[in-house]
């Protein structure tokens, strides 16, 4: 065969090979997760592939694991929210606490010419403490005036609590009042709920809760109360 012909055929052959190689290479790039630098994508991709093989649903985003304190708080707030505030009586409240194994303690005292009942607990769930409720009145005229508890401080404690409150209580979003480390929402005409990151002034002279004024700064208090002001 003529030399030039052989060369030409050889070049064409090489070109074809090169083209094929290029094509193959680009396909590999699309397929292979290892080329992607972001590990999350890798995980997600793998998850997607796996999941698609199974039930076809997309659960690529795993639910965030709740911390023990979040679980505690969620457990408490969920139970409390099952009873409408207007219908919350000392007996009912006490039984909710007993279900949570918190050993309620009730103290009665005078108010006006009536009665005030304070309910606290001997026990507390991890990451929470100082459940405190105040009821005025007696028997069928009883009503809850104040309910509060505390949540252990942490990096996102305020947001965690806010999120769980919104999840469980029918807050009126348009009523929101917020400033640094404080947020409040109306629940209805008579009650509102507020969340505060406690500072030293908040804790000083509290006649019910014991505080270490250095180490307890930053704990979160949640309070449901009557609009009494």
């Amino acid at each position: 065969m003529d030399k030039r012909l052989k060369l030409g055929i050889g070049l064409i052959f090489l070109s074809i090979i090169a083209l094929v190689a290029l094509k193959l290479l680009s396909q590999e790039t699309q397929k292979s997760p290892s080329i992607i630098k972001d590990d999350k994508n890798i995980t997600r991709t793998s998850s997607i592939n796996k999941k698609k093989k199974s039930d076809g649903k997309d659960d690529s985003v795993k639910p965030k694991q709740k911390l023990p304190k979040e679980k505690s708080f969620h457990q408490i707030i969920k139970k409390f929210s099952q009873v409408k505030l207007r219908q919350m009586k000392t007996k009912k409240f006490t039984s909710l606490l007993e279900e949570l194994k918190l050993v309620p303690q009730m103290v009665r005292s005078r108010s006006g010419k009536g009665r005030m009942t304070v309910i606290r607990t001997e026990n507390n769930l991890p990451g929470t403490r100082y459940i405190h409720a105040q009821f005025f009145g007696e028997n069928n005229k009883e009503f809850i005036q104040h309910l509060s508890l505390e949540y252990k401080k942490g990096d996102n404690a305020f947001e965690e609590v806010s999120s769980m409150v919104k999840e469980n209580y029918p807050i009126i979003a348009s009523s929101e009042y917020r400033n640094q480390k404080f947020v409040q929402w109306d629940l209805d005409e008579d009650y509102h709920i507020w969340i505060k990151e406690l500072n030293r002034e908040d804790m000083q002279n509290d006649p019910f809760n014991a505080y270490d004024l250095k180490n307890d700064v930053g704990n979160i208090r949640v309070t449901i109360e009557m609009k009494i002001h």
């Binding site: 005078r110 108010s111 005030m116 104040h146 505060k196 908040d202 019910f208 109360e225 009494i228």
Partner: peptide, 13 residues
């Protein structure tokens, strides 16, 4: 005095 201090409103008594 009728009562002890009690929680009244937004952190006051």
């Amino acid at each position: 005095v009728i009562s002890n201090l009690y929680y009244f409103y937004q952190g006051t008594y």
